[in-house]
Amino acid sequence: MKICCLVKEVPDAAVQKRINPETKRLDRSGEKNLNPFDTHAIEAAMQLKEGGDVEVDEIVAVTMGPDSAVRALHKAVALGADRSLHLTDGALEGSDVAATGYALAKLLESESPDLVLLGQQSDDGECYTIGAVVADHLKMPSLTQVIKMDAAGGKLTLERQAEYGYDTVEVELPAVISVGDAINEPRYPSLKAIMGAKKKPLDTKSTADVGIEADRVGEGGSRTAVLEINPPPAKESGEIIEDEDTNETVEKIVAWLDERKLI
């Protein structure tokens, strides 16, 4: 079985996020890191490999991004992936979710994975959608918010987090599965794995290499356009009731709640 893990380089969690008013995109300068949600996907792949219920031949970390995204791939292989694949091309800059999903799907086609795993969201864009878009292009089932995964007989039994409790579903492979962060506790990369990361194979692909149609990616190929970005309206300050006479205070609170039909 070949597992491809989609990973992304995102601004480090400690960096204050800022929108560049000119490009209307997230300012991605400063410290960057592997999207923490994706580390759960790699860990899930490692647990399938180590669990022994299925034969996992290799785990491939896959990303699309600028040159610096190589660092995210280094971390991914330090966490256990066997090799990595980097789709990078100026033509991809400014791709929206649909265009990114299309490009990643084309890249994945060249690998013919049995299973595609990814984190449920990216720590920067937080769209939660890329898995579904990729699955649609690959004509594979898409499962999201998966918090438990067991493999047996060419099938996976999954638990999906639902609003109340969880759903248990069975899926035949190949499939695209995005995992929730409750699925596992990712391991730390060991120093040995970190020092060996650059020795693991890394392939770099351009859009032409994997047959991506130029007019379907990049800013021009994206069907959405960001017109304006505004901060959410500030919360209105609440009403402060000074407690001078407790009986009176209680009455005021009850009246306030009653007015809003809350009691």
Binding site: R71, H74, K75, A78, I194, M195, A197
Partner: peptide, 15 residues
Amino acid sequence: SDEQRLLRDTVRDFA
């Protein structure tokens, strides 16, 4: 270097 940064981040998380 990538290795130095990655180890620093790992130890930071571990700590």
